[in-house]
């Protein structure tokens, strides 16, 4: 756990582009909210590995969003069921239902559909909000945090030692 928090701090404090971190967070939201072994998640994994998104953030985000998903399951079910049973979309879903690939994706499950739509709707706003927050953090908070007494005290802790050792080994800050 200490190592994970150290990693996150390192990423936030590093020169990694905010976009890479934010995108990793958004992808982790899709994988975390939707059932892990859904077909679309293979595509997300491929994108995460091929695009230069931050993997540490992705893994941490995945843990975070998977935990939250359990609490949000009733909402996902409600959204999914409402969308899947909407008479206006019946034709579309019927066409999808008769496509082998989409049947494998299990789009007709209320939780899969609900969680996927929920994460897709939040994808773009989350990207920009995360981006903004990371930049704000680096500009205003980081320098101030470094100077605070708490941070000074923190630097003397075991946690910071782990973080520093890890950074040195990875050739980072």
């Amino acid at each position: 756990m200490l190592r994970a928090i150290a990693k996150l701090l390192k990423v936030l404090n590093s020169e990694t582009e905010p976009g890479q971190i934010s995108l990793a967070l958004c992808f982790s939201m899709i994988v975390g909210f939707t059932p892990l072994f859904s077909l679309h998640n293979f595509a997300v994994f491929l994108l995460v590995l091929v695009l230069r998104v931050n993997l540490s953030t992705f893994i941490l985000g995945l843990i975070l969003f998977s935990g939250v998903a359990y609490l949000l399951d009733p909402i996902f079910h409600w959204i999914g069921l409402a969308v899947l049973t909407s008479s206006g979309l019946e034709g579309l879903w019927t066409a999808f239902y008769n496509m082998t690939l989409l049947r494998l994706a299990k789009f007709n499950n209320s939780i899969v559909m609900g969680s996927f739509l929920f994460s897709m709707v939040l994808f773009v706003p989350l990207y920009f909000i995360a981006n903004k927050m990371i930049m704000q953090y680096r500009e205003h908070v980081l320098a101030w945090v470094q100077k605070t007494r708490i941070m000074q005290a923190f630097k003397a802790t075991k946690l910071y030692n782990v973080f520093a050792t890890y950074s040195r080994l990875r050739g980072g800050v």
Partner: peptide
Amino acid sequence: KPTRGKGVDVRFKEQ
């Protein structure tokens, strides 16, 4: 109701 008990599977007309 799917076997694992998560959500429900909605059926549509199959060709």
